[in-house]
Design a protein around this nucleic acid. Structure first.
Lengths: 185, 185
DNA sequence: GACGATACGGAACGCCCGCCCCGGTTAGCA
DNA sequence: TGCTAACCGGGGCGGGCGTTCCGTATCGTC
């Protein structure tokens, strides 16, 4: 891993491509043609391929960034005073993102390469902390695991994405939130 | 709408194509090549196009059938003695189907033609009955609508589909089920 | 300011897949 | 059993998209 130094224009273009891809994937999902991403970045398709060996690699780079963002958010919320509220807030944030990011569910599903696996682990850890504290505080039932929570998030993302009405979103969140509460007794 | 009478072999082939499409879409989603469906049906691609003007039309025919099946199930459960259990049972059934039917979420999402709209309405009515009875019986919170329930089902389908572990499925169901219960108070 | 290395752009290639067409076959009827 | 209309099969066309290639432009250095 020699980490060759990029020329200034190369680095700039790489950034533009990433930004354009982020936007394009978020709006249209993986189906967006690569040429369109290139055009949006003000760049030829060839340039995209210089920086990312394949379309999937580009998508993965974007996905990793998205998941990392979410993980960072979860991490910071885990510090909050009220773990129950923190968990709720995180759910809210996830649902909100779903509107803008058609690709997020796919990002979670990505079986792919090392970087993605690392991001997934990062996410798992952050969620484990968040969920664990909520459970200790009696704000979340103990029979759900981090894996369950991730599955729940994926479903939430998908549901919100296909039904963008904010009222529905709030009600879905309410159901999930209450479903995560411990049963009394 | 003259409803021309089909020759015996034509009717048989139509049925084969539908069955093959049902299976293929269920296993691989909409992305499955049409030639593959034709091959599975023991038929040439041309024959598929004689019966369905386009690939999307074929998919829609399959989706309508799926939604109708589900609606029929919901309708019959609405008659049950315990509305709460009936609703739970239906959720369970939906989650179970998700494993075998990758295309179901898309089916719900289908904005398309008349037949689909009709099937959707059928589904709405059936769910309205099921949910309404559960609410009257105090087994479901009153602040969720049929639309919310459908969104929930879509999410559930997606989540279960991408994480086929039966244990996770049961836990997700538990969360959703408990989330649908009325809050005590 | 000139030179080599690096990066760029976009035309072109090949593949996949939805869809059409036509020569051959089969069903239904008298 | 023979005739006609309906139907079948699969080869082939066309467009879209991922990917590659190479002549040209730009960067960074001496």
């Amino acid at each position: 891993m020699a980490e060759r130094v990029l020329r200034a224009d190369a680095r700039r273009n790489r950034e533009r491509v990433l930004e354009a891809a982020r936007r394009a994937f978020a709006e249209q999902g993986y189906a967006v043609p690569l040429d369109e991403i290139a055009a949006a970045a003000g760049v030829g398709p060839g340039t995209v391929y210089r920086h990312f060996p394949t379309k999937e690699a580009l998508f993965e780079a974007v996905s990793v960034a998205n998941v990392q963002d979410l993980a960072a958010d979860a991490r910071s919320r885990a510090e909050a005073a009220d773990p129950g509220l923190a968990l709720d807030g995180f759910l809210d944030r996830v649902a909100e993102q779903a509107l803008a990011k058609r690709d997020l569910p796919d990002a979670f599903a990505g079986a792919g390469a090392d970087a993605m696996a690392a991001a997934r682990d990062e996410m798992r850890d952050a969620l484990a902390a968040l969920l664990g504290k909520a459970q200790e505080a009696g704000a979340a039932r103990r029979d759900v695991s981090v894996t369950d929570l991730i599955a729940l998030l994926k479903g939430l993302l998908y549901a919100v994405r296909t039904d963008p009405d904010p009222d529905i979103r709030h009600r879905l969140l309410a159901v999930v939130r209450d479903g995560l509460r411990p049963k009394e007794g």
